[in-house]
Simulated scan of single mutants.
Amino acid sequence: MADSASSRQELTLRSGVDFRTQTALARREAGRDVITARAVELFESRDYDGITVSDLAAAAEISERTFYRYFASRDDVLIEFGVRGGSRIPDQLAARPADEPPLQALIQAIAHRNAAAQEHSRAWNAIVARLPAKYAFIGEAVGRNIKDRIVPVLRQRLSAEQIERGDDVLLVGLAWTIVASVAKANHSTTYTEPLVLEAAARARAAFVAMDANLPGGPRD
């Protein structure tokens, strides 16, 4: 018992969060994982508008009351699924060479998501393609959440002046648009293909040529 208590105390000191809180957070995350995974199976196989919270709860083998402890609505589950597609981007960005131009580093970080993320993108695109009325709302929420995770990492590559003028937010939107656009233009769903990365580099060069002051360009 003493060893167990000591281990919990050490864990608390290292993380700044007590053991019980960490355990509760882990359980909550696991619960969200299960609900999201089961919900996606329904989203892929059935009409979205015909799926109710009751259906989602039944698929996850929980009560509706328990469902609402994790998510506020059906849309929130779909947003959660969308956000997870970009969960590795901050780590990928942090791992890029420190001397790589910010825009190029972002393009590479987005493009080099792992195979699981690429499969996620295919599933996500298939689901939202059937939801034109909700796409703007869902897409905006997902994009905002992913952006909020990427920006703090990106700021480590920018000067105070660049951050002050809003280059961090501009770069995130620009890099994501470049990668998505060239992937679509090349009819590719696999962002790691050399062709897509080469096209992304050409697109970046075109933007820089139009405006040498573009963040991530030769003057930055």
Score class of each variant (00 low, 15 high):
residue 175 A to W: 02
residue 98 A to V: 15
residue 110 I to Y: 11
residue 117 A to K: 01
residue 8 R to A: 15
residue 77 V to K: 09
residue 101 P to M: 04
residue 194 P to S: 11
residue 175 A to E: 03
residue 113 R to M: 09
residue 45 S to K: 15
residue 25 L to M: 15
residue 3 D to M: 09
residue 8 R to Y: 07
residue 120 H to F: 10
residue 58 A to T: 14
residue 167 D to V: 09
residue 194 P to G: 09
residue 99 D to R: 12
residue 111 A to W: 04
residue 90 P to S: 09
residue 190 T to F: 09
residue 165 R to E: 12
residue 25 L to P: 00
residue 70 Y to Q: 07
residue 33 D to N: 13
residue 212 A to T: 14
residue 151 V to M: 08
residue 129 A to H: 13
residue 32 R to N: 01
residue 6 S to W: 04
residue 91 D to I: 00
residue 125 N to M: 10
residue 210 M to H: 12
residue 131 L to V: 11
residue 180 A to H: 07
residue 17 V to L: 14
residue 78 L to V: 10
residue 133 A to N: 13
residue 145 N to G: 00
residue 205 A to H: 04
residue 165 R to P: 06
residue 57 A to R: 06
residue 62 I to G: 10
residue 8 R to F: 06
residue 80 E to M: 03
residue 33 D to Y: 05
residue 200 A to Q: 05
residue 92 Q to N: 15
residue 35 I to C: 06
residue 46 R to E: 12
residue 135 Y to W: 08
residue 50 G to H: 02
residue 19 F to K: 05
residue 67 F to L: 11
residue 54 S to N: 10
residue 86 G to F: 05
residue 181 S to C: 04
residue 152 P to Q: 10
residue 182 V to F: 04
residue 87 S to I: 13
residue 72 A to G: 15
residue 93 L to G: 06
residue 138 I to L: 11
residue 22 Q to T: 05
residue 39 A to Q: 09
residue 202 R to A: 13
residue 103 L to R: 04
residue 161 E to A: 15
residue 28 R to E: 14
residue 40 V to G: 08
residue 163 I to L: 02
residue 60 A to C: 08
residue 103 L to P: 02
residue 211 D to A: 13
residue 190 T to N: 15
residue 144 R to L: 13
residue 174 L to K: 02
residue 102 P to G: 10
residue 47 D to I: 11
residue 60 A to F: 06
residue 26 A to F: 09
residue 106 L to R: 02
residue 179 V to Y: 07
residue 97 P to R: 06
residue 86 G to M: 07
residue 160 A to Y: 03
residue 91 D to A: 15
residue 119 E to Y: 01
residue 92 Q to V: 02
residue 215 P to F: 10
residue 109 A to F: 04
residue 202 R to H: 12
residue 134 K to N: 05
residue 9 Q to M: 12
residue 30 A to F: 10
residue 154 L to M: 09
residue 184 K to R: 14
residue 153 V to C: 08
residue 208 V to M: 02
residue 58 A to M: 06
residue 160 A to N: 11
residue 150 I to P: 04
residue 89 I to K: 01
residue 8 R to S: 13
residue 211 D to C: 11
residue 37 A to F: 04
residue 198 E to P: 00
residue 215 P to Y: 12
residue 218 P to F: 10
residue 33 D to L: 10
residue 184 K to T: 14
residue 118 Q to C: 01
residue 44 E to S: 14
residue 22 Q to H: 12
residue 95 A to W: 01
residue 130 R to F: 07
residue 203 A to T: 05
residue 37 A to W: 01
residue 63 S to P: 08
residue 136 A to W: 03
residue 205 A to M: 04
residue 93 L to H: 07
residue 163 I to H: 03
residue 28 R to D: 11
residue 66 T to P: 00
residue 129 A to P: 00
residue 127 I to F: 10
residue 110 I to S: 00
residue 38 R to S: 12
residue 219 R to P: 00
residue 193 E to Y: 03
residue 150 I to R: 06
residue 100 E to P: 00
residue 141 A to F: 03
residue 85 G to H: 07
residue 191 Y to A: 12
residue 168 D to N: 03
residue 199 A to S: 15
residue 10 E to Q: 14
residue 30 A to R: 13
residue 82 G to W: 01
residue 203 A to G: 01
residue 148 D to L: 10
residue 122 R to I: 14
residue 116 A to M: 02
residue 78 L to P: 06
residue 82 G to Q: 04
residue 132 P to S: 12
